[in-house]
């Protein structure tokens, strides 16, 4: 029996400890905001926070999250108003939107660690998250707005 917290609520899991956290979140809890993209930790669509750090849930086995606190996109903020989410809306980052839960969770973890990230910090933190629609330019901008380093959208 594995016990953990997901978005503040106690959960338990009995089963194959090798099963990745992503499938617990999606199939067992029906929290579908965390996405499958590659299953190999290559794209970041499945990014969640485990004890406050960004991890790839597609590669994190259930056996590794016992006693941990997991936060998914659904639990990032009560009303979708985390500074990163607000900036994402302001800049209109998403196109298809599929990778954006992972992008937002990654960016939120970055800002927790580095409240005023430099361009280089942003590149280092966000290059593990693939966006096939190509919203990278707006992701850079939204991270700067979320961190209070930029206020307006440039043309």
């Amino acid at each position: 029996m594995i016990q953990l917290k997901v978005n503040g609520a106690a959960k338990q899991y009995e089963g194959d400890g090798e099963m990745p956290l992503l499938w617990f979140i999606r199939d067992h809890l029906q929290l579908t905001g965390s996405k499958f993209g590659c299953g190999m930790g290559l794209c970041g669509a499945c990014t969640v926070h485990v004890n406050g750090e960004a991890v790839r849930s597609c590669l994190t086995p259930m056996s590794a999250v016992g006693g941990k606190e997991v936060t998914t996109i659904e639990g990032l903020s009560a009303h979708g108003d985390h500074p990163v989410q607000k900036a994402w809306e302001h800049v209109q980052v998403p196109q298809c939107g599929y990778c954006q839960s992972g992008q937002i969770m990654q960016a939120a973890a970055l800002l927790k660690q580095k409240p005023k990230p430099t361009d280089r910090d942003i590149e280092a933190a966000m290059s593990g998250n693939i966006c096939r629609c190509g919203t990278y330019q707006r992701i850079r901008e939204a991270v700067k707005i979320a961190s209070g380093q930029k206020r307006t959208v440039t043309a």
Partner: peptide, 16 residues
Amino acid sequence: SYDLKDMCTGRAVYGF
């Protein structure tokens, strides 16, 4: 986009 908010909060529903 009509779906902007949902896409930023994980509520948007895809085929998956």
